[in-house]
Amino acid sequence: MREGMKTKQNMLCPGSVMADRKKKAVVEGIAQAVFGVCASFVILVTASITVYMIGKGASAFWKVGVKEILFGTVWKPTAEKPSYGILYMILTSAVGTGLAVLLSVPIGVLTAVFLAEAADKRLAAVVKPAVELLAGIPSVIYGLLGISLLNPLMYRLELALFRDSPGHRFTGGANLLSAALVLAVMILPTVINISEAAIRGVQPGVRAASLALGGSRIQTIFCAVLPAAKSGIVTAVVLGVGRAVGEAMAITLVSGGCVNPPLPFYSVRFLATAIVSEMGYSSGLHRQMLFAIGLALLIFIMAVNTALTKIVKKGAENGG
């Protein structure tokens, strides 16, 4: 219809072919520019987040001192003589994430093996949607389950373990171990999905070669397929780490919330949870410190991402 009208117009006034073409070129140019702006917007957003975080967070490092912040163990931001050491929080984030990954990766990779290699299609048809749903559950719900279900259980364990140690400060089950468990469940879908994709991506020739050498199905999976999917599985682990380190809402309450060294039955505070639980009442240097913690998190995540790009690149070179 529209095309037809255009030709009619063109026939009526012969000079407009040029004008039409010109108009078309202008529209093309504008379209390309608009799309280009959209793409640059992504760069702009990432850059401004980085710049803002540096701008807001670096000043605290400047005022308090890098050493005092990173290696100080006393976090008393609201005291008369405030102290801003976040070493325990850094260690808690590291240990908590490490524990979560240690728990989650074996289960996740084995589940991925089940999904990608299992002979039983009907069982896989139950597990797969379950994993997808697990990935969609909001983190606050993990937190809710953590405090109302996991913490009481943990408290019982704590009571049993420390019955005879009067020095122990009871946490009611809100401790590092609980938080690590919650994180482990939270990163499980990430680990499963990415490992599964990696396992499925292994060349079929690898399986055939191993089977033809007299490998059993299990040997083939664990000795040939998994090593061939190595870089994908490492990607899964790294992304899991990224998710666990940045998670806050699920574990603010579950972890107890006191700044303590990261021991399993201690009430602890993570980097990300410190921001969430203190931002509401913070001001001045304390507030800048929370931005400094955010900056530290951001730098860590970016480092992880860069490492990831390298791993994937290397994996592509090795064909794994």
Binding site: Q203, V206, A208, A209, S210, A212
Partner: peptide, 8 residues
């Protein structure tokens, strides 16, 4: 096999 299929 038809296609060379070394392990990575």
């Amino acid at each position: 096999f038809q296609q060379p299929n070394p392990f990575p």
